[in-house]
Structures are given as structure tokens and as C-alpha cells.
Computed example of a mutant assay.
Amino acid sequence: MAIRHQVIEHPPEAVWAVLEDPELFGEWVVGTSASWALDERWPQIDAALAYSVRLGPWSYEGRTVVRRTEPPRWLELEAESGRLGTARIAIEMRPWGGHTLVIVDEHPLRGLGGVLHAAPLDLLIQLRHRSMLPRLARTVERTSPKADTAGPPEKRSPATQVGG
């Protein structure tokens, strides 16, 4: 399974504020070049956002649907990727002192990805998450009002890696 976690030095509400903005997904989801809401209900259950992926001259548009939401604690998504099938992406936010422990659990769910799901695919997803979680932390840092976190400013960092 591809599970990874990271502490983000902002409260869960600040992380949630980024997750509930469909246009910000393109900033922190690795591989996505842009994202936008398909309806006004995001992130309510069955609401969807669209995303685009560009690789050189090629581009692809996919769709991600909310399957479970409990603000500011849970967001579970089903990302649709055409012939590759769908993936389940669960994002959990736990209060961690004045910060947030973000846990991402992603795995292929349906279609070709689900059929071919094996350890090498989990490794690729882990590598993606290794970049994605720090990008999420930077997006939260950029979009959140400045809060006085522990320690002087020169000793602060936007995120602290916990492992995974």
C-alpha cells in the first residue's frame, strides 16, 4: 500500500482550506498542471473537479470525485484516469499539537491499474507522494495567514518530514 505522512506546521483548518479549493489541486498534486471545479458543491460528496496533465505536446484531462468528506479531518477521492481506471486517494488530517499530521493513502481501485496493482506501482505512488506532501505544505504556507508557530522565524520550516 502507498501510505505516506507528513507534519504540516499549520492547523487542520489551514490544510482543509487548501483541499477545499479545487483550483489549488494543480499546485500540489504531482503530475497535474491545472484543476478546476466541475460544479459549485466541491468538496461535498459526489462533487467533482477536473484536472489536466501535460507531458510535452500531449495532454490529458481527468476527473476526481469526492467519495467521503468530514471537514477538516477527512477527504476521500476517486480519481478517474481513463483507460488506466480509477484510484482511491484518502487524505486524513489529524491535529498534532498546533500542527497537522497529514496521512495520504492511495491505491488503484478499478480498471487496468487495479488489475495490475503490485509493489512496483506502490513504489511509484510513494515517490509521487514524497514530492506531493511537501508541495501541499508549501501551498498551505503560501495561502495561510501567518501564525506564530513555535520558535523564532529563522528556525521555522514550512513542513517537517515525519517519514513513511
Score class of each variant (00 low, 15 high):
Leu112Glu: 09
Leu112Cys: 08
Val115Trp: 15
Leu112Ile: 14
Pro71Gly: 10
Leu127Gly: 13
Leu101Ile: 06
Leu109Glu: 07
Glu80Thr: 14
Gly82Gln: 13
Arg110Met: 03
Arg63His: 12
Ala118Asp: 07
Val102Met: 01
Arg130Gly: 02
Arg128Met: 06
Met93Ile: 05
Pro120Leu: 04
Leu84Arg: 14
Gly97Asn: 12
Leu123Arg: 12
Pro108Lys: 03
Gly85Asp: 08
Ser59Gly: 13
Ile125Glu: 04
Met93His: 06
Ile125Phe: 03
Arg128Asp: 09
Ser81Trp: 10
Arg130Met: 01
Leu77Cys: 03
Leu77Lys: 03
Val104Ser: 08
Val104Glu: 07
Asp122Phe: 12
Trp58Thr: 04
Leu124His: 01
Pro108Glu: 11
Pro71Leu: 07
Gly82Tyr: 08
Gly97Ser: 15
Gln126Thr: 03
Val66Arg: 10
Arg128Cys: 01
Gly85Lys: 11
Leu75Ile: 00
Arg68Lys: 15
Trp74Ala: 12
Asp122Tyr: 14
Ser81Cys: 06
Ser131Ile: 04
Gln126Leu: 02
Leu109Asn: 10
Glu92Pro: 01
Arg73Val: 11
Gly114Ile: 11
Gly62Pro: 09
Gly113Pro: 06
Ala79Asn: 07
Thr86His: 04
Leu121Cys: 07
Val66Phe: 08
Pro71Thr: 07
Ala90Gln: 04
Pro108Arg: 12
Gly98Phe: 05
Leu101Arg: 07
Gly97His: 11
Ile91Arg: 00
Arg67Leu: 08
Thr100Met: 05
Val65Gly: 11
Met93Asn: 04
Arg73Gly: 05
Arg68Phe: 05
Ala90Arg: 06
Glu106Cys: 02
Leu121Asp: 01
His129Gln: 11
Val115Cys: 08
Ala119Glu: 15
Gly111Thr: 07
Ser131Asn: 04
Met93Phe: 04
Arg94Thr: 11
Met132Lys: 02
Arg83His: 01
Leu127Asp: 10
Ile103Asn: 03
Gly85Trp: 08
Val65Phe: 11
Gly82Lys: 09
Met93Leu: 04
Pro120His: 07
His129Glu: 03
Pro95Gln: 09
Pro72Met: 10
Leu123Val: 13
Pro108Gly: 09
Arg63Cys: 15
Thr86Pro: 09
Arg130Cys: 06
Trp58Met: 12
Leu121Ile: 15
Glu80Arg: 13
Glu61Tyr: 05
Pro72Asp: 07
Asp105Val: 08
Gly85Val: 06
Thr86Lys: 13
Leu124Asp: 09
Leu101Glu: 13
Ala119Lys: 14
Gly114Ala: 15
Gly97Thr: 13
Leu127Pro: 00
Leu112Pro: 06
Glu61Asp: 12
Arg128Gln: 05
His129Val: 00
Leu75Asn: 00
Val115His: 12
Glu80Val: 07
Leu101Ala: 05
Pro71Ser: 05
Val102Ser: 08
Ser81Val: 13
Leu101Phe: 05
Leu116Gly: 08
Gly82Ile: 08
Met93Trp: 02
Leu84Cys: 02
Pro120Ile: 09
His107Asn: 10
Val115Arg: 14
Pro108Ser: 03
Leu109Thr: 03
Glu78Trp: 03
Ala90Met: 01
Ile125Arg: 04
Arg88Lys: 09
Ala90Pro: 01
Pro72Ala: 09
Val104Trp: 10
Gly82His: 05
Arg63Asn: 14
Leu121Ser: 03
Gln126Ser: 08
Ala118Tyr: 14
Arg63Thr: 15
Ile125Trp: 02
Val104Thr: 11
Leu116Arg: 15
